[in-house]
Amino acid sequence: MKCLEGVFRMNIIVCIKQVPDTNDIKIDPVKGTLIREGVPSIINPEDKNAIEAALRIKGDGKVVVLSMGPPQAEEALREALAMGADEAILLCDFKFAGSDTWATANVLAAAVKKIDHDLIICGRQAIDGDTAQVGPQLAENLGLPQVTYVQKISLEGSKLNLERAMEDGFEIIQAELPILITVVKEINEPRYITLQGIDKAYDTEIKKWTADYIGAEVEKIGIKGSPTAVKKTFVPPRKGQGQKIEGQPKEQARKIIQILKEKEIFQEF
């Protein structure tokens, strides 16, 4: 990170993922697979928080958004540009297909090494997989320290002041750059896109990088390079039809309390 005449220049890479909107999901009940047709794609929500955090802290520096995905993931990168990101890179190659989190981290790491950066920000987790693994795995791959679940960020001198959310409170952390952080949605409210932003997004070229270009090791990426493999998917089984408690409210109440007594649920206290 450079500081010229009191103005910081922090170059930040934000890793984003295009995901199907899970609120709108349809499942093929026979095959147990996702029906992707007609399901809208969005930037993963917490990745939007990551973009917002980067834009607020970059100073005079640059925000580069990076995504691994199919050609249509370009839409997500355009949206990030419209929010205000300076550059966008799509890692697109059939050799990347089927990567698990370990292999994805290997692809992203190879690309990150080609980009000047002081800080990497990722969303905590994507709503399609909910793993929260790629961030820490990328950090490890790059030999960078990490802070996950960041709910507050500010810059003090050349150091970051961070708050890391825990189940029972939070930690106050001071971290040196370079570092990788993952952010939770509480960190900020992502900005709306302006018309100017959209104009700019369509004037900016989205770079497309292949496996060869980033020098990714073929045996460590894609479906063949992934240690884990999905063997089967299925729709979670439902309970059988439950028992209906009929009658007027008083009668229903009496019956259900009686059942609970018989099941000895009350014995516990």
Partner: peptide
Amino acid sequence: AFGGNIMAQIKC
């Protein structure tokens, strides 16, 4: 996976 809509079995 996918918000609990699908269950996946994974091996390593």
